[in-house]
Design a protein around this nucleic acid. Structure first.
Lengths: 228, 228, 228, 228
DNA sequence: GATGAATGAGCCTTCATTCAT
DNA sequence: GATGAATGAAGGCTCATTCAT
C-alpha cells in the first residue's frame, strides 16, 4: 500500500512551512478540535496535537489563544460568505432562482460538513458571552439577512402573496440556522438532502407559485446535493 | 408587606436551609452565572459568589461540578416540558388551538427570559460534545417533536394542505429553536411578540384555513404575551 | 534529641493556620528564597518548597506573584524602619548619641543578617526598572535621610566643623548602604563589627570632638554588636 | 562630517560584519537592554530587537545567553578598570593627586552614564547569587581596593592622620559604590558633580592637609566633570 | 553569516476537589 | 450544615535553544 511510503516522508508535517500555509494548517486543526471536543476543552495542547505540531508554534504564529480563535471564526465567516456569494453569482438572476441558490448554498457539502457545524456552534455559543462574535460576524450576518429580505420582497411582489416579507425572511434565516444545529444534534439519519426538502416544503407554503418540493421553478438544482 | 420581614432574616442566605431549598438556590445561581459569563467561565467560585454562599457548599450538595451542571440542565428541561404540557392542558382541544398554545408556550416570559435563553445556549453548545445532553434531553426533545408532528398531521388532514406534515413539523420545531437563539443574539429590538408574529406568519402559510396573523382561529390568545 | 519529637508533629507546617500566620510564613519563605537563589530564579514553586507548602496556597493568600513580592518588600521596609526608630527612642537624646544609635541600628544582627542583605539587594536591583520600589520605599528613604541630615547639622553646629552637613549626611547614608552590599559580597571575613568600625573611623574624621573609634562619646554601645 | 556617510551604510546593521564588531554590537545592545528593562526581562529577543538583529545571531556568536551576560559583565569590568588605570597614568604621581584622579575617574561621563549604572546594578545583584560575578570581577575589585589602600596609607603617613588607612580605604570604596547606586535611584537632581563634592567633603575630613572641597591640592581638575 | 520556524521545559495562574474546623 | 485553607492537575504563555534554509 502506498501509505507506508508517503507517511515516512510526510510524518508529522514538514519541518518548515511558509507562514501562511502553517497558519491555515493551525486554523484547520482548531476547527477540527472545536468540533471534536467542544469549546471548553479546546486547549492549545489539544490543537497542537491535532496538527501534529507543538503548542509553542501556535503562540509563535498567533500570539494568543484568543487571537487563534478569533482568526478561526473570521475564517469560517468568510468561507461561509464566499460560498453564498459565489452561489448567487452562478445562479439565474430571477429572485426565486436566487433564493433557491442561496438556500442550496447553505447545504453545500464543504460548508455543511459535520465538522464545520460542530465547530461553528462551539464558537457561537461561547461568543454569546463575549464581544468576539459581534465584532467579527455582525456585519456578515446583516448582509445575509438583507439579501434574503430583498429576495422575499421581490418574490412576494411578483406573486402577490399575503405573507409579510420581513417575517418570512426572518423565518427563512432562523430555519436555516435551526436546520444546521439540528443536523449536528441528530443521531438519526436526517441528512442534508432532507433538510433541503424541509426548506422547500416551507418555501412552497410561502411562495406556492414560485416553489415546489424540488426548489424554485426554473432553477438549476445543485447536482452535488441531490446526489448525496 | 410580608416580604420586608422575610428579607431581614433571609439576608445572604439563611444559615440553615432545607436540602431542597438550598439545592434549588444553587441551581438558580448556576443558571444566572451561565447566562452572565458563559460556560467556560462558569466556575464553582463564581456560582457560589452569585448565590452568596461558599464553593465548598456546592460540592457538599452536588459532589461534583459535572453533577451540578447536569442537574441544572435537567431542571431547565423539566421546566420547559412542564410549561408546554400545562399550556396544552389549558388550551381548547382542536389541533390548531393546541398548536397555537404550544407555540405561545415557547414565548412565555418565564421560559423565554433572556437569562434562560443565555443559560440554555451555553449548556446546549457544550453538551454537543459530551454525552450529558443526549442522556438528559433526547427523550424530552423526541416527545416534543412527536406532539408537533401529530398536530401537523391532524391539521393537514383537516385542511387538505399540500405541505408534508413531517417536514412542516420539523420546520416549526427548528424555527422555534432558531427564534430563541435569535432573541438572544439580537442587539436590535426584536421582541418575543415579534417572534410570535414570525411564527404565525409561517403557520398562516402552511395552514391558511387554520391560522392568520394573530394565531389559530378560535384559540385563546395568551394575554401575558400580547401585553409585553 | 528533642528535635525528633517536634518534627514529627510540626512536619511540613500545620494543616491549618490563621490567615496572618500563614501570610507571614510565606513572606519569610520569600525572603529566604530571594536570598538563596536571587530574583530571577525566585519562582512560586521555589518559595512554596521553601515553606513546605503548595504553590497554590501562595496564590490563594496573595493572588499574584507580584503582590507577594510587593508585600515582602513592604515588610522588609517596615521592619527596617521600626528598627531604627526604636533605636533612636532608646538612645540618649544628644545628636551624637542619636547618630551613634542610628548607625548601630543598621548593623543589628536581625536586620543585618546575611539573608536579609541578600534578599534586599535581590529586590532592590529588580525594583530599579519597575515602579514597585519607588512606590513602596521612597517615603521611608526620605524620612531616613532627613533624620541623618538633621543630626549632622546639629552636630556640625555644636562642634563648628568645616564639613558641609548635606554632603556629610549623604556620605553617611551611602556608606551605610555600601557597607551592607559589601558585607554581602565579601568572601573574606569582614564582619558587622568591622563595618561599624569603618563607620566610626569615618565619623571620627567628620566630627572629631564627638566621635572616636568606639562611637559617640557618652553613647551606650550596643552590647549585641560588640559581642558578635 | 563622516558620520552621515557611514550611517547610510550601517543602517540596521550591515549584512556582514566582522566577528568582533558584531559581538561588540550585541554586547552594547545587552547593556542597553539590561538598563532599560532590568535583568529578569532581558531576553534574547529583546536584546536582538535592540540591536536590530535576529535572536538566532546571538546564539551563533555567544552560544548561550549565560555566556553573553558573562562577556557583557567582563566587558564592563575591563572598561571600568581601563578607565581608572588610564586616569592614574595621566595624573601627577603624588598619592593625593593619584587618589584625586582615581575618584574623578569614577565619575567620568562615559563610565558613570545612567545606562551603565543601570546595567551594572542589574547584573551585579543577579550575580550575587551566582558564581559569575566572583569569577569575573573579584580580581578587579581586589586590585582596585589595593590601590586605594596603598594611597590612603601613603597619604596618612605623609599627613600623620589619626584615621586608620584600611577603614578609610574601605569607606572610600563603598562610598564610591554607594554614590553610584544613589545616582541611579535618585529622582531628584543630584548630579555627578554633586557626588564628586560629596567625595571631596569626605576626603577633606579624612585628609584635611591634602584635600579641600575642590579636590587634592595641586591636582588637575577634570574639566569634563566640572563643566557638566 | 543570518533568519526565523519549531520545540519543549518551566513559569504563573486557575480551579475542581479535599478536608480540618 | 457551612466555611475556607490547602492541594495539585492542567492551562496559557515565555523563552532559551535547535536547526533547516
Amino acid at each position: 500500500m502506498a501509505r507506508g511510503l508517503q507517511s515516512s516522508t510526510v510524518e508529522h508535517a514538514p519541518r518548515k512551512a511558509s507562514r501562511e500555509v502553517r497558519r491555515q494548517q493551525l486554523i484547520d486543526a482548531t476547527i477540527a478540535t472545536l468540533a471534536r471536543v467542544g469549546f471548553s476543552r479546546t486547549t492549545l495542547t489539544e490543537v497542537a496535537g491535532t496538527a501534529g505540531l507543538s503548542h509553542g508554534l501556535i503562540i509563535f504564529h498567533f500570539e494568543t489563544k484568543e487571537k487563534l480563535l478569533t482568526e478561526t471564526l473570521q475564517f469560517m465567516a468568510r468561507e461561509y460568505r464566499d460560498n453564498w456569494v459565489r452561489a448567487l453569482d452562478e445562479a439565474p438572476k430571477g429572485p426565486a432562482a436566487q433564493l433557491d441558490a442561496l438556500i442550496r448554498a447553505d447545504f453545500t457539502d464543504t460548508i455543511c460538513a459535520p465538522e464545520r457545524l460542530a465547530a461553528w456552534s462551539a464558537l457561537w455559543a461561547e461568543a454569546q458571552s463575549r464581544p468576539i462574535y459581534q465584532e467579527n460576524c455582525a456585519e456578515f450576518d446583516l448582509e445575509y439577512l438583507n439579501v434574503i429580505e430583498r429576495l422575499c420582497t421581490e418574490i412576494a411582489a411578483e406573486g402577490n402573496y399575503p405573507c409579510l416579507p420581513e417575517h418570512t425572511a426572518r423565518a427563512i434565516r432562523v430555519t436555516l440556522n435551526g436546520l444546521w444545529f439540528d443536523l449536528m444534534t441528530m443521531t438519526n439519519t436526517l441528512s442534508r438532502v432532507e433538510s433541503l426538502q424541509t426548506m422547500f416544503n416551507m418555501l412552497m407554503a410561502f411562495f406556492p407559485r414560485h416553489f415546489d418540493h424540488g426548489g424554485a421553478f426554473g432553477a438549476v438544482p445543485d447536482l452535488k446535493i441531490s446526489a448525496s
